[in-house]
Design a protein around this nucleic acid. Structure first.
Length: 614
RNA sequence: GACUCCAUAGCUCAGCUGGAUAGAGCAGCCGCCUUCUAAGCGGCAGGUCGGAGGUUCGAAUCCUCCUGGGGUCGCCA
């Protein structure tokens, strides 16, 4: 690509047709001011390379363009000179001086200055930010949507709670996080599949079946007494037992466990999964795929796990060997024996991992490898798993296994959600596991609402522990970020309602608003903030960090509340100025833009954007 | 013992994959309601980014070693 020839024009743009930058912005929406300038600055650097002694093919990828922390530094700052100084073998500031004239020649740049160790600060024409506003008002809910993902298939596996009981708040965190991450990736242009891995094989679900069978006998009138140690005591299995008694009468009693267990097990799993799906639906979470672990070895005419192990064997990644005894707390029934191991150490794990139990059945790990290989075979090169904190020690072996099972072509990113501490007005809410009557996720959602649960979970990094206070999250005050952000949206809507009774803007009037009338510093500040939204979406999606959206929304809300209040101190800054229709329209267009971005971000997080909150 | 996550204002936390003088919110102090929702806003004060080295133009951020906490540690899922 001949970048130099298109120096003052945006890249990939026919210069004859693209005569103004604002036109360009509107023609290439969704637009990202920062990306645009990153490309243009990179082009300037490449062009400079023809006259200055720059190595061929210099890496311009490290150039960043970001808003300076201090607004007095300008609108955009780039580190181009500092990053490339070494390649150019000259001090950053000297390189910067050579670059400045070219940057100054860029359309829309009003001034350029070198600062500090070699930052280049750009001041932009207001028209650029007006262009941003127009693209918001035109694209509406599509503003910020990115094509960066190039429709690449991404599999987000989350929740995957064992179908042995109701979900607790910890599951809820993974559920909300995974769902928001999936939405974020979708918004950033990926082809996302939400997936749930049902652990319906192994010992746990057999225990579930025995527990349910007990409830079945109870439903038939038997006095079962206390639930024996080792079985699930929760009364959520009572309805399962009753359903079984209705369907089968007493006929199961005559069968051996070998006969009734598969029947009861499947019924119990189905009942648990129905309930889990309901609980997820209460949080507006819907998976695209529910993948059964059991189906890997029993489902069709082929044992996927055996196939996987065979394949790994053929590539010399499986061997018979012995493992050193586990460190830490001693394991009572440890016996040194030769077993079937996957060479996880070849892929960065600390020890090799067993694929078969001593009874000859597959380990959970073996099934999990086959499962991840299945994802890969279904076209997902990028996989994201969302796990609870207690599975942190499992990451190395799974990423190792994915590398091995996909021959290095698949990529797994495991996101760990740390523990949730449930509080009520500062007092910790104890969850007694023994009795089985712990506080379920559903109870929490029913008490404080979906929005509060979702936003508070997302208002924290996934790998930091979360204090969730049932009292605080429903407070209607600025201390509660859920309310604070939603209220900003409601306020925008309220302003629009009020305006209908005064200047009553036409349906298409905002798009043609005279945005040059927005001259106040706070108005300019809001425009800058809104301009960052597309960039934020892309970086949050790339980092797999939806919490950045929540914090950004809090900042937008803060900007807006401040703007709103300025109208109190300065009546000339009120949104609606009775005798100045053009100014009012411009300001209402800004308010509408704020509302659109708030609604968009909240939508990505799966939180509602109410028009009023009385 | 090994691996892993964390340590930032009195408290709860951000810090945009290495950028400029480290930021919010609570709590504290001082202000702002005849006004588009005061359910809000402005200001002041508050810091050896756990400690010590290292990498480079530049480190809260990356590497090593300490200190203090959470989690995990064949055949559970």
């Amino acid at each position: 690509m001949n970048i130099g020839a298109c120096l003052t024009q945006p890249r990939n743009c026919d210069s004859a047709r693209c005569h103004s930058l604002e036109t360009h912005i509107r023609a290439h929406s969704p637009m990202n001011l920062f990306e645009l300038f990153q490309n243009r600055i990179a082009a300037c650097v490449s062009d400079l390379g023809q006259s200055v002694d720059l190595p061929k093919g210099v890496d311009t990828g490290r150039i960043t363009v970001e808003p300076p922390r201090d607004p007095s530094h300008g609108d955009l700052a780039t580190n181009a000179a500092m990053v490339l100084a070494k390649d150019a073998s000259m001090p950053p500031r000297v390189f910067a001086e050579k670059l400045v004239p070219r940057l100054q020649a860029l359309e829309g740049v009003s001034s350029v200055e070198i600062a500090g160790p070699g930052f280049i600060n750009l001041r932009l024409d207001s028209s650029l930010f007006h262009g941003v506003l127009r693209s918001i008002l035109t694209d509406r809910e599509a503003y910020g949507r990115s094509t960066k993902g190039k429709r690449k298939k991404v599999n987000v596996e989350f929740v995957s709670a064992n179908p042995t009981g109701p979900m607790h708040v910890g599951h809820g965190r993974g559920a909300v996080f995974g769902d928001a991450l999936a939405s974020l990736l979708d918004f950033a242009g990926y082809d996302v599949t939400r997936e749930y891995y049902i652990n319906d094989a192994g010992a746990q679900v057999d225990i579930l079946a025995r527990s349910a069978f007990l409830r079945y006998r109870e439903a038939l009138g038997e006095n079962i007494g206390a639930i024996p140690e080792g079985l699930y005591p929760g009364d959520y299995l009572v309805p399962v037992g009753e359903a079984l008694s209705k369907q089968y009468g007493s006929s199961l009693l005559k069968q051996s466990e070998k006969e009734w267990l598969p029947i009861v097990r499947q019924a119990a799993i189905d009942a648990m999964m129905d309930r889990i799906r309901e609980d997820l639906a209460a949080l507006a979470i819907n998976h695209d795929v529910f993948f059964s672990e059991r189906s890997l070895s029993e489902g069709g005419n082929r044992d996927e796990i055996a196939a996987l192990i065979d394949e790994l064997k053929s590539r010399d990644l499986v061997f018979q060997g012995r493992l050193p005894p586990p460190k830490g707390a001693p394991v009572e029934d440890w016996e040194d024996r030769e077993q079937t191991l996957f060479c996880a150490t070849q892929y960065g794990d600390d020890v090799d991992r067993p694929l078969l139990k001593s009874d000859g059945t597959y380990t959970y790990f073996a099934a999990d490898i086959a499962y991840h290989r299945s994802k890969y075979l279904r076209g997902f090169k990028t996989m994201i798993d969302v796990w609870g904190a207690d599975h942190g020690g499992y990451i190395k072996r799974m990423t190792a296994a994915v590398k091995a099972a996909t021959d290095g072509l698949g990529d797994l990113d495991v996101k760990i959600c740390q523990l949730v501490r449930l509080l009520r007005n500062g007092e910790q809410v104890r969850m007694s596991k023994r009795s089985g009557d712990f506080i379920t996720l559903r109870e929490v959602v029913d008490e404080v609402g979906r929005d509060a649960v979702r936003f508070m979970i997302l208002y924290r990094k996934n790998d930091a522990t979360l204090d969730f206070d049932l009292g605080k999250v429903i407070e209607q005050s600025k201390d509660n970020p859920v309310f604070y952000v939603q209220y900003a949206h409601a306020r925008c809507a309220s302003v629009a309602r009020q305006a209908q009774t005064s200047i009553n803007p036409g349906s298409d009037e905002f798009k043609h608003a005279d945005l040059k009338r927005l001259t106040d510093e706070s108005e300019r500040g809001v425009m800058h903030r809104l301009a960052q939204y597309p960039r934020l979406i892309e970086s949050a999606a790339l980092a797999h960090e939806p919490h950045r959206i929540a914090f950004y929304l809090h900042e937008v809300a803060s900007d807006f509340h401040a703007l709103w209040n300025r109208g109190k101190d300065h009546p000339d800054l009120r949104f609606v100025i009775e005798n100045d229709r053009d100014l009012s329209i411009a300001r209402l267009a800004l308010v509408d833009s704020v509302r659109i971005v708030l609604a968009s971000g909240l939508s990505v997080l799966g939180v509602s954007a109410p028009d009023e909150m009385r």
